[in-house]
């Protein structure tokens, strides 16, 4: 990699809905690139040096927490781990993630959406005994492979990339989306969750659920954790079809 400094051109969506008279617009900022620079570093540089009002969300800045998903040159992704060096012409356009309530600029309210999703799919172990478990005794055993398989589906970080990349969601505002299906698949696989297939059907057996998916699979293409959305949606659908 060349050490020569280049100037990056960021085009950033700006709009603060709470500021009277503010209108959505694109604003251009120039930043001198540094080696190993990520969009996280560049945005903070812009905030500290050029415009302290710019809003965006980062927490772990290591690709773990899922806070910072945004649309980078047309593709939803985690901004914190996106290196600026990936963009050969040095032009980077940033938009907030569509499909979520806008807080301001690049910040969207994924938290509200994800809590509602968790409530809707009842994202917890359904077992009346779970609260009275005698934790002095040996834990219930689990097949090591099953434990690994559950973890594979639990790696979702609720970043929202799948929701923003979903064409069905654009047409059906209440569509559960891949993040919800992945959560359901995770609990359906877990022997500790005592829900029956019928109970799962109640949650996802309609067009806002797994039957609404048009199988365009933007979720699979843009998941930053490479979760197996295609396989799991197909699996849930087959499982649901067999019920009624």
């Amino acid at each position: 990699m060349s050490d020569q400094e280049r100037v990056l051109k960021f085009q950033i969506f700006r709009y603060n809905p709470l500021k009277k008279g503010d209108k959505p617009r694109m604003v251009t900022y120039e930043v001198t690139e540094a080696p190993g620079m990520t969009i996280f570093i560049a945005l903070n540089d812009i905030r500290e040096q050029q415009d302290p009002s710019i809003q965006f969300d980062f927490v772990c800045r290591a690709g773990i927490c899922g806070s910072c998903a945004m649309v980078v040159n047309g593709q939803p992704t985690l901004a914190c781990r996106t290196l600026t060096s990936l963009y050969e012409d040095g032009e980077i356009k940033l938009l907030p993630l569509p499909g979520f309530e806008l807080i301001g600029d690049l910040s969207v309210n994924t938290g509200k959406f994800m809590r509602a999703m968790s409530e809707r799919v009842e994202s917890w172990i359904h077992d009346t005994r779970a609260d009275d478990v005698n934790y002095e005794k040996l834990e219930e055993r689990m097949d090591p492979d099953v434990a690994d398989e559950i973890y594979e589906l639990e790696r979702c970080v609720e970043c929202g990339c799948c929701v923003s990349a979903c064409a069905t969601k654009r047409m059906r505002p209440d569509f559960l989306s891949a993040v919800g299906f992945m959560r359901l698949a995770r609990f359906a696989l877990d022997p500790r969750d005592k829900r029956t297939d019928d109970e799962f059907y109640e949650i996802m057996g309609d067009d806002d659920g797994v039957f609404g998916c048009m199988t365009l699979l933007g979720c699979e293409d843009y998941c930053p954790k490479d979760l197996p959305h295609q396989t799991q949606i197909a699996y849930l659908r087959r499982k649901m079809v067999l019920i009624r």
């Binding site: 917890w124 172990i125 077992d127 005994r129 779970a130 478990v133 934790y135 002095e136 005794k137 834990e139 219930e140 055993r141 689990m142 097949d143 090591p144 434990a147 690994d148 559950i150 973890y151 639990e154 877990d190 500790r192 969750d193």
Partner: peptide, 19 residues
Amino acid sequence: SPKAIRQLSAWGVPWSRVR
């Protein structure tokens, strides 16, 4: 600590298991 981890196991943590 052993109680905490066993409770979390009942609450859904897919702890890696002995094979």
